[in-house]
Design a protein around this nucleic acid. Structure first.
Lengths: 148, 148
DNA sequence: TCTGAAAGACACCCCTC
DNA sequence: GAGGGGTGTCTTTCAGA
């Protein structure tokens, strides 16, 4: 993505994905059709991966979140943790990381009891040790990657 | 949010926020007017916090991400780190956590050099020690909180 | 690649059942 | 909650520069 107008457009959409083409065209200084064409290109080329509604975790019954670092029990075994854990929908993100652990997960659950069950499930599904860091308060998250 | 139809609607919107009311009404089995009324209620009551376009980190020049745990240098001082760090747009999320550190950040930067600069900036802005865990690969993230 | 205009689809608000 | 009507706006497409 080289064009500065594309960057601006991506930033605008990133902040307000429900904006109409007319609003976007005003903000980036192009005609509606031009904006539409560029937006399509950004979507099809994979710059814009998708759109998402951000829900209130408490309102949807997942008030407790945590980071879980996982380490394979046997480092010599082939390691397939991300795929093995993918069906667990409580897991919002899965990264492999440099450092003590092999992977870092971010999870959302309903209760401490459910967190315990999830950790246990992760352990024996992927044959790993875990180290859980419970989130006490979220000050901000989902902040956009581009600032307009 | 108690009504199962609301849950279903939130799940649908969460997956496809750009769906039209007609499409949503088909998926949840209600009339368009009912869907519109419920959607407004979900937005106004704060269940739906907002909408976001998900961008490809590499395409927007932030291919490197990391977790940064931070610990106040002086635990007796009043602690204002989240507010002090808020202007740093490389920080995507800031949580207070239970465990060794006081806060966990998730950041996205362009390069190792920029990560170094960011860590340094965080340290003297908030008077904290840091422990950085670099992300090597992201298998998935932004997974929706509700599965339809 | 942009602009401009025309046609169809949609959101929105109000109403009645 | 369903269904309909009216209005304004938006999306989409296609012409032309």
């Amino acid at each position: 993505m080289d064009d500065p107008v594309d960057v601006r457009l991506a930033a605008e959409v990133s902040h307000d994905p429900r904006a109409t083409l007319a609003q976007l065209s005003e903000r980036v200084g192009l005609s509606v059709s031009a904006v539409q064409a560029r937006l399509r290109k950004l979507e099809n080329s994979g710059v814009i991966v998708g759109y998402q509604a951000i829900l209130d975790p408490e309102a949807v019954g997942r008030p407790l979140s945590a980071f879980i670092e996982i380490t394979p029990l046997d480092p010599r075994q082939p390691d397939d943790a991300p795929r093995l854990l993918e069906p667990l929908t409580a897991i919002e993100a899965c990264h492999s990381v440099a450092g003590d652990a092999a992977y870092m997960l971010f999870v959302r659950v309903a209760s401490p009891r459910e967190l315990e069950a999830l950790v246990s499930e992760i352990r024996h599904r992927a044959s790993v040790n875990t180290r859980t860091t419970v989130v006490l308060q979220t000050f901000y998250e989902h902040r956009p990657m581009l600032s307009p």
